[in-house]
Design a binder for these strands. Structure first.
Lengths: 206, 206
DNA sequence: GTCTATAACTAGATAGAC
DNA sequence: GTCTATCTAGTTATAGAC
């Protein structure tokens, strides 16, 4: 396993857990068991390392998601909102084959990107991967054509917030579900819990 | 205006904007135009300052919210979920009288508390202000008694996420609404946008 | 490519004069 | 209560030997 990948794996885990600001290069290189200087040799700076961690996931996720959403848009029948949101499940869970705890880590990182780092990551993602959002908006519009562009804008942001926030604290939530309700739920279970919620929210009367 | 309050005001603004981790004591004291040592003199540590900033809001908000929710629970009629969520509007907007941009700042800080600071703030708030959550759960239960305790747990967390995430990025969202949709919405408008969404989400079929 | 050593800087916290 | 000066420990980043 290359130094570069050891760094990416360690950084991903720590960033997801403690945020970008809250994680130092020293912690990363010590968990990765590589030299401190290796981060700057391979990535140039901490900011570039953050981008590299996110890109590794986006490059894996975005084609699968695109094809799932395009499928929905091209089918003749009108899809339900639940179908549109369910299109995310398989691509997101596939991240677990690609990397251990891939789904959780990625969604937590996404959440961090919106709150840490003063929006630089949000900018990076929306400019580097514009298709993901465009396809999603198109799919929702097909499922619910009456929704105005502005209401769509608000509701997609609300949805983003629900998902991202839930996933940022999914470890704590799964613990509570296990202790208080004896329900040993995994990340796929959390995703399946949240879909009816966001589908109903987007479909709410204005 | 006392040094202590100057520090609280400056800290609040910077914490809301850049997070707890992302704000240094030096930035705070320089914005407050007080000496660096004053933070440790008046509050003891950065962590205690964070608690003080949040307590100032919670002490203002929590009695108003409690009375609004208790009102709903004690009325004989079954309330709708929209009524329950609407009970938050007046107490939240009242924070604007108490402090300039009080509503936005408080909600942004709440969002930070869930993602920054590895949960210490969440712990502090839930142990110091347990009534807020209990009253809320009771009100939702009265509006939607069929919802199981576990589904209630998940959906209240989803709701929390929607609100908190939306408010963390409310400045950016209001900018977009103004530029793309010529809609000059304020924080009260955002709150009124989000209520139908979360009410429908909580009421979704299981 | 990988290491040591260190530069250059920032963090939170405190001692002690006033 | 407020100041200056400083401590200790942490940060990112880099120069240069191997």
């Amino acid at each position: 396993m290359s130094t570069k990948n050891k760094i990416l794996d360690a950084a991903e885990k720590l960033f997801a857990d403690k945020g970008f600001n809250g994680t130092s290069l020293r912690e990363i290189t010590s968990l990765a068991e590589v030299n401190l200087a290796a981060v700057n040799y391979h990535f140039g700076s901490k900011k570039e390392l953050i981008k590299a961690v996110m890109s590794r996931y986006m490059d894996e996720l975005s084609p699968r998601l695109e094809s799932a959403l395009v499928n929905i848009c091209q089918s003749t029948a009108q899809p339900s909102l639940t179908e549109v949101f369910s299109a995310f499940v398989e691509p997101l869970l596939a991240l677990n084959d690609f990397q251990e705890h891939g789904t959780t880590n990625f969604l937590q990182l996404l959440g961090r990107g919106y709150t840490d780092s003063q929006g630089f990551l949000r900018w990076f993602l929306t400019t580097s991967y514009p298709n993901v959002i465009d396809n999603f908006v198109e799919a929702v519009h097909k499922a619910y054509p009456e929704l105005s562009a502005e209401d769509m804008f608000w509701r997609l942001h609300f949805t983003m917030g629900t998902i991202v926030f839930t996933m940022s604290s999914s470890d704590a939530l799964m613990d509570i579900a296990r202790n208080d309700f004896s329900n040993d739920i995994d990340i796929g279970g959390v995703i399946r819990q949240v879909i009816p919620y966001v589908a109903a929210g987007v479909a709410a009367p204005v």
